[in-house]
Design a protein around this nucleic acid. Structure first.
Length: 789
DNA sequence: GAAGTGTTAAATCGC
DNA sequence: TTAACACTTC
């Protein structure tokens, strides 16, 4: 859908340099021709009067100077911003290439582009509408040398970053026990999100490990530079540096993009803010659109202060509020407003609607996550049959998705899962992309390290390390280290042979650079032995991987050809976001609350509304509840007609169950009870279905109790094995039908899950004392029949 | 060097 | 529960 994008905005064109001009000066931002039929402006103007309300129209027509559009949820924010872009062009106020609109995802950019085009009569037009990060890439590719990079730098994502950190730890002989790798990576990312250099970090940090983290930070940046690679943060930070240090570039860019539009302004972080300031030194034609109540990316360093201080930052700014909601029923809007009004850090903005009151909000209280999912799937099916869809199931954390997947699959309802197992995150896809990158640039160390022994070609850990050391010692790329070593005969025997084969392969990759992307990709997958290895594996998983690669070839086939087509393909793959894969065609979409930003659905399920999960325990610990509450607000306001909330009294983490029942989310208490109808899970739980069937049955799974001493018939056990032995001595089976251990969790058909207090074996039967949390009774005594082993 | 076995740690949100 | 890692064996 958005594949043609980068080509469209002119990345593929060589820079237009004026003869005699200093490098980087002048109109070096690239442009694409665009034209409009005569009379288009008139047609546009009449459209506006029909489609926009007074405030929206005001926002659209306020062209000169800074304007902040405070848009409430469902108030037609995207509509307003797209109309504004079309208006600028339709009225002849701006050429398409003088407009820069920045969004947060490629999906949003693609949709916006589509809408602008249709507003202008379906003509392909080319204002630059892209994400901060793709804008950063464009800028950097053009001016890489000014920040000491090569233009063909690689973009590394989180996965690559983790690999780099591992390598770093090896080189610095750092141990995870000394400084947990994930901690270092997290803090360094956090610092970069705030725009800090390593030195600035050291100055400000009071962390016990600050010095060690500082050293990793410095080494990490050096390693990136040495590898000619940038991470996501650098895609903003380096352009900021570029513009700060090069007034000529800043000026020409500022004059070139005369109109700047920023979407989701509340989620900009300090570096992005700096970039915006640098782009508005030549003029103040900035339209920022945002909603402080929907600021949900504090974790990414987003600073809600940016939107709260807009008037100070841009003196004379006009503030336009969009307060009419066109999306949700009165009930839904009331609930959302009630929740978010508990926040302090917000502007005064009151949403209202002309839509009817609508149905009550349903709150479903489940016994366990499976029941919650079963209910959601069943209700979703009902609404789909009513023709009320599409449906969204929203949750706080990705791990919750599995239950819903199972539930929908059980009802044979097709769903789309956004995130977690994204196509471009799959190992085989990433490997294939690494091969492509190497074909373009064999000095791409990150890619080379990735596929050095993928598929296995006899280059083991030892050889690998030696190669890394060689490159490090000579401070050259792995590729040149490899060639050097082969010439000088550093390696011998099997290692040398394997490396030689690999070097020949890499060499041959280069030949395919001139071929169409998909042809080259297929050839590379064959020549590298990748597909062969998958076929020989024979497993179902390998077959799936092969299919994914086939899919990648298909994507490549649809990719527009051009001199820069490989580069664009790889850049887009690198900047690919989970949400970009959502096509809006599915009846049911499963995703996190964060991914749901900007979307709307007739029917929304907001699941897992439990203390500790939502709000997340970490947010509670860090006292970051306002952001969680905004996230809740975002979730509630995605719904147009029907809204379901749910929570589960029990939930498993790491295959373990919590000891006590979950408490309902505090956000649920913030919704006026008159808006909510509560349903308890009984009717939907397996317990209910089995209530009248046969005797009470107790079954349990043996819970690992390693390193934890548990009393059981007077003895203590410190390992699974010792418990297992003790059970076997008593002729009790230890798996499946379940040996019972004190402290174990058991499933009871009527009362749900309970905790074993005492187990007393007796003549084939076992007397079990179980405690159930907030069930009908606190204590239950029963008998379980266990099969002898 | 690769494959197999056992132990352990883990998972908030994302460009 | 599961995936990654360390360690052993082939």
């Amino acid at each position: 859908m958005s594949h043609g994008f980068l080509a469209e905005v002119g990345l593929s064109e060589p820079p237009r340099t004026n003869p005699g001009a200093a490098p980087g000066s002048g109109e070096d931002t690239g442009s694409v021709q665009g034209s409009f039929p005569n009379g288009r402006a008139d047609c546009m103007a009449s459209d506006f009067r029909i489609d926009l309300n007074e405030q929206q129209l005001l926002a659209v027509q306020h062209v000169e100077g800074p304007v902040l559009i405070l848009a409430g949820a469902g108030s037609g924010k995207t509509r307003t911003i797209t109309h504004k872009i079309a208006y600028l062009m339709g009225q002849g106020l701006a050429r398409p290439d003088e407009i820069l609109a920045v969004t947060f995802t490629n999906k949003a950019a693609g949709e916006m582009r589509g809408r602008v085009e249709s507003l202008l009569g379906g003509l392909p037009v080319s204002p630059l509408i892209c994400t901060f990060h793709s804008f950063g890439v464009r800028l950097l590719r053009r001016h890489a040398h000014r920040v000491e990079y090569q233009p063909d730098f690689a973009i590394c994502d989180v996965d690559d970053q983790k690999r780099l950190f591992k390598q770093l730890y090896l080189e610095m002989s750092l141990k995870d026990e000394e400084l947990p790798l994930e901690k270092a990576r997290g803090i360094i990312g956090w610092a970069k999100n705030r725009g800090w250099t390593a030195d600035e970090y050291l100055e400000r940090s009071r962390d016990f490990d600050a010095q060690a983290i500082y050293e990793v930070f410095v080494a990490y940046q050096n390693l990136l530079r040495r590898s000619n690679a940038v991470d996501f943060d650098d895609l903003i930070l380096l352009p900021v540096r570029l513009l700060e240090e090069n007034p000529d570039v800043r000026r020409s860019l500022g004059r070139f993009y005369r109109f700047l539009l920023i979407d989701e302004y509340q989620d900009t972080n300090p570096p992005q803010y700096d970039l915006i300031r640098l782009l508005t030194t030549e003029h103040q034609n900035i339209s920022a659109v945002g909603d402080e109540d929907q600021a949900i990316y504090g974790v990414r360093g987003a600073d809600i202060g940016n939107i709260l201080r807009f008037e100070k930052d841009f003196p004379g700014a006009r503030i336009i509020k969009l307060e009419q909601n066109y999306r949700s029923t009165q009930n839904i809007l009331d609930a959302a407003t009630a929740v978010v009004s508990n926040n302090v850090a917000r502007k005064d903005k009151v949403l209202w609607t002309r839509l009817p009151k609508g149905e009550s909000i349903i709150l479903f209280v489940a016994d366990d996550a499976g029941t919650e999912a079963a209910y959601v799937a069943e209700q979703a099916r009902r609404h789909l049959e009513d023709g009320l869809g599409p449906v969204a199931v929203l949750y706080r954390t990705n791990f919750q998705s599995r239950q819903f997947e199972e539930a929908f699959r059980r009802l044979s309802i097709r769903y789309q899962l956004v995130g977690s197992v994204s196509f471009y995150k799959r190992k085989e896809v990433r490997d294939a992309l690494a091969y492509l990158r190497l074909a373009l640039n064999p000095d791409d160390d990150i890619s080379l390290a990735r596929i050095l022994n993928e598929p296995p070609r006899g280059i083991g850990q030892v050889t690998r390390n030696r190669l890394f050391q060689l490159a490090s010692a000579r401070s050259c790329s792995l590729w040149s280290a490899l060639r050097g070593a082969l010439e000088s005969g550093t390696f011998s025997g099997k290692a040398a042979a394997s490396l030689k084969t690999f070097a020949d392969l890499l060499h041959s990759l280069r030949e395919w650079e001139s071929h169409p992307l998909h042809v080259a990709l297929e050839k590379i997958l064959n020549a590298s032995g990748y597909l062969k290895a998958l076929r020989e594996d024979g497993s179902e998983e390998a077959a799936n991987r092969a299919l994914n690669l086939q899919e990648l070839v298909t994507v490549a086939r649809d990719w527009p050809e051009g001199p820069e087509s490989w580069r664009e393909f790889l850049d887009e793959a690198a900047l690919h976001a989970d949400i970009d894969e959502m096509d809006g065609k599915a009846d049911v979409t499963l995703m996190t609350l964060h991914n749901a930003k900007g979307l709307e659905f007739p029917v929304v399920f907001l699941a897992g509304c439990e203390e500790g999960l939502f709000p997340h325990s970490r947010s509670i610990a860090e006292n970051d509840l306002e952001e969680e509450r905004r996230l809740c607000y975002v979730g509630l306001t995605r719904a147009r007609k029907r809204l379901y909330l749910s929570y589960s009294r029990r939930r498993r983490f790491y295959g373990r169950e919590s000891d006590e029942a979950n408490q309902p989310s505090r956000f649920l208490h913030e919704i006026p009870s008159r808006l909510v109808e509560t349903i308890y899970s009984e009717r939907y739980s397996p317990a209910w279905a089995n209530r009248r069937q046969g005797p009470v049955f107790l079954g349990a799974a043996l819970q690992p109790v390693a390193k934890e001493k548990r009393a059981w018939t007077g003895k203590s056990y410190d390992s699974v094995e010792s418990v297992r032995r003790a059970l076997e001595e008593r002729n009790l089976k230890t798996k499946e039908s379940g040996g019972l251990v004190a402290g174990a969790l058991i499933v009871h058909r009527t009362f749900g899950r309970g905790r074993v207090l005492k187990v007393e074996p007796a003549a084939g039967d076992v007397k079990v004392t179980v405690q159930f949390p907030d069930g009908v009774k606190k204590m239950l005594q029963s008998y379980a029949r266990l099969k002898p082993a």
